[in-house]
Amino acid sequence: MRPWRRGLVLTALALLLGLLMLFHAQVTDRGGLGSLVESFLPWFGLLIPVLLAGALWRRSASALVALLLPVVVWLSLFGGLLVDKSRPGSDLTVATHNVNADNADPAGTARDLAASGTDVLALEEITPQAKPLYEKGLAKAYPHHTVLGTVGLWSKLPLSDIRRVDIQQDVGPLGEAKPADVTLPDNRALRATVATDHGPLAVYVVHQGSVRLFPQGGFWTGSRDRGAQALAKAVAAERNERVVLLGDMNGTTDDRAFDGLTSQLDSAQDEAGDGFGFTWPAKFPVARIDQILVRGVEPRSAWTLPATGSDHLPVAAGISW
């Protein structure tokens, strides 16, 4: 019986790890704790081999058995991302990229994106200074485009019904309120219709509010969460049955803040990607916060594009009718 009595602390840690991943939605979001856990949920799997090594070193049978719980839970959550689910035969390719307001080479970024060959391209965090450089660099590849505030859409196909989508924060991190009749000039979302051979496609370009880590306030996500709620309402009211949402969401699809969106839209990366598709930070991506979400069309493939001068990686997807 001694192997079953050894490593009781390791046994408890293995069970706690499994229960945390299994019931992550029940973790309190006070101080943004729940969002923080869910943003990095796949990385909890790295604790499994650490606990396994400890269980083998201690020769603990109970710890080895307890490890089955986190292994099964992790595989049920993320095992599907370990295989390539891409398929040939897409009708349209779309991409999105947060180009970074501090990008030192907007012209080079534009050249790289134009060379990607995607049909529809969304950009976020466009500054007034960099806007002419993106317009010039992308003009030949994309004859149709629109920029509203800090977000823009470039397309090989005609665009129409272009309008702003107000997802601005109404209360800041210090509690200041945004007047009800004010739409801030740095517009962060737009909606347009792309004319395709298969009919109109509604495309949303979004840059959700940032998250902040405060020493006393915790992981602050208020602006982003309210923006996600506003965006979910806009998508729910969308009359076009075919919808593609492109943008920097400042959160992963595991984050409960996006339940209103993920209940309506499917993730192209989850449905047709190869791997986790992490996009940020570009030098060592640890989270997929740049998303391509769809409704009424079928993702056939999804991938990350090579790094540009931004701190995000671009993401692309092929979709089919």
Rank of each mutant, 00 (worst) to 15 (best):
R2K: 14
R2V: 15
R5K: 13
R5N: 09
L8H: 13
A12E: 02
L16S: 13
L17M: 08
G18A: 12
H24G: 03
Q26M: 10
T28A: 04
R30G: 13
L41G: 01
L41C: 10
L41H: 04
P42F: 06
G45F: 02
G45K: 05
L46S: 08
L46A: 11
I48W: 15
R58D: 11
R59M: 12
A61E: 00
V65F: 11
A66Y: 11
S76G: 14
L77Q: 14
G79T: 08
L82T: 08
L82S: 03
K85T: 00
P88E: 06
L92Y: 03
L92D: 06
T93L: 04
V94W: 06
A95T: 10
A95M: 10
T96R: 04
H97G: 09
H97D: 11
N103S: 02
A104R: 13
P106M: 00
G108H: 14
T109C: 05
S116N: 02
S116D: 02
T118P: 06
T118G: 03
T118E: 12
L121M: 02
E124N: 13
E125M: 03
I126Q: 00
P128R: 06
P132L: 01
L133G: 06
L133D: 05
Y134M: 01
K136H: 07
G137C: 00
L138M: 13
V147Q: 11
V151M: 04
G152Q: 04
G152W: 14
K156V: 12
L157W: 12
L157N: 01
P158G: 03
D161Q: 15
G172Y: 11
D181I: 07
D181C: 04
V182N: 06
T183Y: 10
T183P: 05
L184W: 14
D186G: 00
R188P: 03
A189W: 03
R191K: 14
T193H: 08
P200W: 02
V205Y: 04
H207R: 14
G209Q: 03
S210V: 09
V211E: 02
R212F: 12
F214V: 01
P215A: 03
Q216L: 09
F219L: 01
F219W: 07
W220E: 05
T221A: 02
D225P: 01
A228Y: 12
Q229C: 04
A230L: 15
L231H: 09
A232C: 09
K233Y: 09
E238F: 01
E238P: 08
N240C: 11
E241M: 07
G247K: 08
M249R: 05
M249E: 09
T252Q: 13
T252N: 10
T252W: 05
D255S: 01
A257F: 05
F258K: 10
G277D: 13
F278I: 07
W280I: 01
A287R: 08
R288W: 00
I289N: 03
L293K: 02
L293P: 05
A302T: 09
W303R: 07
L305S: 03
P306H: 05
A307F: 04
A307E: 01
H312N: 00
L313M: 03
P314D: 00
I319C: 02
S320R: 15
